[in-house]
């Protein structure tokens, strides 16, 4: 459906101004979007900002972390002015360590069997449902896929998770860790095909410095721009985008 036919409440705005403009208002509600980038590219920051911005307008969110323990995550995020601790304390943004959940479920923390994956999926769905979240983040899907062992399991997991969350009108960001400077959107090559959208956080070299870039590679249901933008990460404003100056990179 062209974006013009989607009414405003069918779009989930990220609250990152230039990104929402690029998206034609926001991410189509219920989408599963891959946020791709190498380590340090800003995936966690962008996802947290998305949740916090949603919470500020009354949309509850949940952040599942696998790569970083909670104390590390919160310590990093506290460095940003957008990070409002009160929203965490009030339960508008819920931070959950997926490894702790796996442990409690008695799952092997390194490798999941088909049954383990199914149990984990149920838990994620239950949490999303119970908290009535409109925004969900898994950081990172790469770490989760690593535990899922086969391409079929990965496909099945993301597909089922995406469908249930879509039914709850919950918009999901999955972070995907890739090696630096590779034109690759996911580690296992599957994640990118099942997701509705791909945001790519990269960089270009300019006079020996790395300039952060952002590109909206794909977004189903949106007539979006694919132009590469410059991305800034600052204490004051978190992730911001600006038109990339093009002359001779």
């Amino acid at each position: 459906m062209p974006i013009t036919e989607l009414s405003k409440n069918e779009l989930c705005d990220t609250g990152i101004e230039e990104l929402d403009v690029m998206l034609g208002g926001g991410i189509p509600t219920g989408s599963t979007v891959l946020v791709v980038g190498s380590s340090g590219s800003g995936k966690t920051t962008l996802c947290m900002q998305y949740l916090i911005n949603g919470a500020k307008k009354g949309e509850r969110g949940v952040f599942f972390t696998i790569t970083e323990p909670l104390f590390k995550l919160t310590k990093n995020m506290e460095g940003f002015e957008f990070y409002d601790k009160k929203l965490i304390e009030s339960g508008m943004v819920n931070l959950i360590d997926l490894r702790i959940i796996s442990e409690r479920l008695g799952l092997d923390t390194e490798k999941y069997t088909v049954e383990d994956a199914s149990a984990l999926l149920d838990i994620l769905r239950d949490i999303a449902d119970e908290l009535n979240v409109k925004r969900l983040v898994i950081d990172s899907i790469t770490a989760l896929c690593y535990r899922l062992q086969t391409p079929e399991m990965i496909r099945d997991f993301i597909f089922k998770l995406g469908s249930s969350l879509a039914a709850m009108k919950c918009t999901t960001l999955l972070t995907s860790e890739v090696p630096p400077r590779k034109f690759q959107y996911s580690q296992y090559g599957i994640e990118e095909f099942i997701s509705d959208g791909i945001m790519f956080l990269g960089d270009i070299e300019r006079k020996g410095d790395l300039i952060r870039t952002f590109q909206l590679v794909k977004m189903r249901g949106a007539a979006h721009s694919r132009t590469k933008s410059a991305m800034s990460i600052s204490t004051k404003n978190g992730v911001e985008l600006a038109p990339l100056l093009k002359s001779r990179e």
Partner: peptide, 19 residues
């Protein structure tokens, strides 16, 4: 003062000015 990491980060300079 707002610091920009390098004078090559022109887009960031522009963003900070406007902000």
């Amino acid at each position: 003062c707002i610091f920009v990491e390098s004078p090559t980060m022109l887009e960031k300079i522009g963003l900070e000015i406007i902000n």
